[in-house]
């Protein structure tokens, strides 16, 4: 089966989600797949996709593809999909993927499922709905299928394959979006892709206490997050708000510190593989959703947990 995967990079480096996507695509294909890469990237790096199951990479290396324009990216990816006669097109469910994938699906007359969380069974794919309060199996009723994969949904390992890289060019049509200014949250692990997330709620009592969250996150190489009330009062930026009206995340480990666990918050984090809740209130709803609970004050527990993890990492 012919499967095409869009492997995203950020400033010339592949995202982890790109490797996950290639490995996932290769599992659907039952063998090697073709990957699309856009923008400037070092050729040896591009060929690294071979280690995850790509036999061929179509590299649209024009510098104008460094900046994300959903309409342009969709034209390039569907051009590549037509070239290889793809029956499945795999995209990562990142901000870029969310913008690009629906347009690709329209261009290819395809059925589309965003944010799937497991390998398809036949034409059926699984995704979470109602902000993680339920799941749905969708059947995709077109001959071409486009899916975006929720990051951290598929376990994969690095192999030893190699990919041939073909340099491609494409002149997109239509009006363009031009990037004027980039405001990177420097040095931080992106929340949507993070394997470990440390999150704080009103129990932290104020933004001046966030070093407790940040120190633990540093030790764990984790992203930081917060509850809605915290971003509503601007202790933390909205980009860190996880929950039903914020970001939905699926890390391996979610550590909730001083968050009571309202239904809207749980909706955004309940797909986490393991949840640790730390709260002074034994009756906090989070303890019904957590795997491990610590009834205690975050001001005592967090430094202690940080030291315990440091000791473990050094052992």
């Amino acid at each position: 089966m012919s499967v095409l995967v869009f492997a995203e990079n950020s400033e010339g480096r592949f995202k982890k989600a790109a490797f996950e996507g290639v490995a996932f695509a290769s599992a659907i294909a039952g063998g090697s797949v073709t990957a699309v890469v856009m923008g400037n990237m070092d050729a040896t790096q591009v060929a690294e996709l071979g280690k995850f199951g790509a036999s061929k990479v179509l590299h649209y290396s024009d510098a104008s593809f460094n900046a994300m324009d959903a309409g342009v990216f969709a034209q390039v990816i569907s051009d590549a999909a037509s070239k290889v006669g793809a029956q499945w097109v795999i995209v990562s469910n990142t901000y870029t993927g969310k913008a690009v994938a629906p347009r690709v699906a329209v261009r290819l007359n395809a059925a589309f499922a965003p944010g799937i969380i497991a390998l398809p069974e036949g034409n059926t794919v699984k995704r979470s709905v109602f902000s993680n309060k339920g799941f749905a199996d969708f059947s995709l009723n077109q001959s071409v299928k486009v899916v975006s994969l929720t990051p951290n949904s598929y376990s994969f390992a690095e192999g030893s394959g190699t990919a041939t890289v073909e340099s491609c060019s494409f002149s997109p049509a239509g009006n363009r979006v031009t990037v004027k200014e980039v405001k990177k949250a420097a040095g931080k692990v992106p929340l949507t892709e993070a394997e470990v997330v440390v999150s704080g709620g009103r129990g932290l009592k104020g933004p001046e206490n966030w070093h407790l969250i940040e120190n633990l996150a540093d030790t764990l190489n984790a992203a930081t997050a917060c509850s809605k009330p915290v971003s509503d009062v601007h202790w933390r930026p909205h980009s860190e708000h996880v929950g039903q009206t914020g970001i939905t995340i699926k890390p391996n480990l979610y550590i909730a510190c001083g968050i009571s666990g309202a239904i809207q918050h749980l909706a955004g984090v309940s797909s986490s593989k393991v949840i640790v809740a730390i709260n002074t209130d034994k009756e906090a709803p989070f303890f019904k959703a957590a795997d491990y609970g610590v009834v205690g004050d975050v001001f005592d527990v967090l430094p202690r947990l940080n030291e315990a993890i440091k000791a473990f990492k050094n052992s």
Binding site: A110, A111, F112, A113, T124, V129, N132, K133, G134, F135, A136, D137, F138, S139, L140, N141, Q142, S270, A277, F287, K288, A289, A290, D291, Y292, G293, V294, V295
Partner: peptide
């Protein structure tokens, strides 16, 4: 182009370990 084959409720948690 798509239809829901079926919905599922999330699996209940095994229970928290304190």
């Amino acid at each position: 182009r798509t239809e829901v084959a079926q919905f599922q409720a999330p699996a209940p948690k095994a229970g928290v370990k304190f």
